[in-house]
């Protein structure tokens, strides 16, 4: 399912103050691709994610999935459209601590129309756990007994249980150590390759986005300042902000990093002497 965001505006009001969190955002997320959204804290990335799934109502503009808007009020019982799912940043607080991994995933599996038989549901839970690189026996364990990376993969399995067509991941790895963040990123990449699902990956880590996404949008102060194919945006950024963002990224290469720091040292000396 492709996602088209057109002229979306979202304003938060608190008392007499109001804050424009999304300012005329227009974006394309093509079907079956991973689109990255980068930008600094407060630039509106999470707000956009929440608008995409319908947790927040937008003030203006439209969000189309394959040409038509979400149908959040399909029925009184089901308030959200399960075709679009969201993964949150913090894997500890995004899973109910009182339910086992299996119960959490089964809840979603139940929503699928063919989930009549208990056997089918059970085998589907195992299948989902294995899809994210966990073991079927892990179904009996509670969230707190998993590591952060494993919990995040449970969250992915759960989101996938309702067979969504779009998966929105809001900083899915920024709470994780590098050693486990790679697990989660690989799961997302395999998911996109195997089930052809559309993924939106929000991250402040440009290397993660470059690694995984075919398209990228750069946000700044509630606006999208630049978007396009990842290669194009990263190799020849047009907007100053994008360029400064790319320059700032630290790379695990002592020589290059030292050169950057030395450059600043010279600049500082120059400023202090003059």
């Amino acid at each position: 399912m492709s996602v088209h965001v057109t002229g979306v505006t979202k304003r938060f009001r608190s008392g007499s103050r109001s804050h424009l969190a999304l300012d005329d955002v227009t974006l394309v997320m093509p079907h079956g691709e991973i689109t990255g959204i980068v930008g600094e804290s407060g630039s509106g990335k999470s707000t956009l994610a929440r608008c995409l799934v319908g947790i927040e109502q937008i003030d203006a503009g439209r969000i189309d999935y394959d040409g038509s808007p979400l149908q959040p009020f399909l029925s009184r019982r089901h308030r959200y459209d399960a075709r679009v799912q969201l993964i949150f940043q913090n894997p500890m607080s995004s899973l109910n601590p009182r339910m086992t991994a299996g119960q959490l995933i089964e809840e979603g599996v139940r929503r699928v129309p063919r989930a009549r038989s208990a056997d089918w549901r059970r085998s589907r839970v195992s299948e989902l756990l294995e899809m994210v690189g966990l073991d079927a026996t892990d179904a009996k364990r509670y969230p707190h007994s998993f590591s952060g990376g494993q919990r995040q993969r449970i969250a992915i399995a759960r989101a996938m249980s309702v067979e969504p067509e779009v998966l929105i991941c809001d900083e899915p790895v920024s709470a994780l150590d590098v050693s486990v963040q790679a697990q989660v990123l690989n799961v997302l990449r395999d998911l996109q390759r195997q089930s052809g699902i559309t993924i939106v990956l929000i991250s402040h880590d440009l290397a993660v986005v470059r690694h995984l996404c075919s398209r990228v949008a750069v946000m700044f102060g509630g606006r999208v300042v630049e978007q396009g194919p990842t290669e194009a945006v990263f190799d020849s950024p047009v907007h100053d902000y994008t360029r400064s963002l790319l320059d700032a990224v630290a790379v695990p290469d002592p020589r290059r990093e030292r050169a950057k720091l030395a450059e600043f040292g010279e600049y500082r000396e120059f400023r202090q002497s003059g």
Binding site: G149, Q150, A182, R210
Partner: peptide, 18 residues
């Protein structure tokens, strides 16, 4: 395990286990 901006094609190798 680190995704690298200067080498985006490289395979990410997670460390197994915890």
């Amino acid at each position: 395990a680190i995704p690298r901006l200067d080498d985006p094609g490289a395979e990410l190798l997670p460390i197994a286990g915890t």
